[in-house]
Amino acid sequence: MITEDELAGALRTIADRAEDRDVLTGVETKRRRRTRKRLRRTLATACSLAAGWGVLVAWPTYSGVDTAQPATNTVERMWPDALFTMPGQSRPLAAISATQVLVWAERGALEVYDAASGRSRPVTALAQAPLSLAVDHERVVWLADGHAWAAPLQAGGKMTKIGPVPGGEHVDRIALAGRYLVWSSPLDGVWRMSVTGGAPERVATGLQIVQWPWATDEPLDTRANPTKVVNLQTGRSIKISAVPGAEGLRCGPTWCTGSRGQEHIVQKIDGSWSRTYRAGSPGYPYRDRFFVGLGEIYDASTDATVAFEGAKIDASGGRKWSEGNGVVFWPHPAGVRVVNLAAIPRA
């Protein structure tokens, strides 16, 4: 027998483990699908009415995946809603949502740029763009001078020093997990600290963050394979099964990339599927789906390789594109051209 209070406590504990998701994009996708369905029904009716007069009505089509000819897949064609031009010379740092990206403006400030309205709003003054940061819908956190810092994204907030991060110079991944800043380094496991301050506490040993809440036992040897990907919120562990000959795998909960002989490969985490990947070794996936390689974005969920304008070799023989967390960008006569991977609906 349990008590009512224990039942209430159990429900609270479970609720606390809800994973954050980009709900707005999902709503938008559902809305579009319904609109298309309505349109198709309307056109079907129109077709059947018009058929007697020999009228041809084009069937509406939408962004089909063309994996046979990857070169013809461009961001403009495949993901038009994810592409925008931002005026000025701000540097995109990370995707926040389907329309918002965090940017660093050259005058020395973090800002949120909204592609829907075409406007920026200031977050906080900051002399240099942070090298290590994480952002969610509420705040941005970053590491600088051995300390963790935070600033709310809403207007009027102030930058605050959260506290010292021990071994900060070795930290190579940070994430936001609700009210916690989480970080990991190759030898020291995963730690967390409340965004309001307090003592750091160890969350896991022997693991490195992939993308919260997922972590992996990434080996120091770049040619060795990890064995598992673990959900740090629920404890669920997914075994990695390397395809024969695969080395240096780096995995999210569904997909891995690595090499096999002279080739780069992408494979499913359970080893049930793999293919060669021509655009170099791209590391960990963004949102368990997108790999940004040498001038191409690969969407593992649809097996589509998508090219973008900035990756073309220019007159100087170089490529001018760069990337942040969930953003790919390059210079453009009107400012900065940006692909926001968070704006791409689920497949």
Partner: peptide, 20 residues
């Protein structure tokens, strides 16, 4: 509204449905 309340709604959704 969605940005501000989606996490709270996901919490509620998880205890209602039992699946993320």
């Amino acid at each position: 509204f969605v940005r501000a309340r989606s996490h709270a709604l996901l919490r509620y959704g998880l205890v209602l449905t039992g699946s993320a």
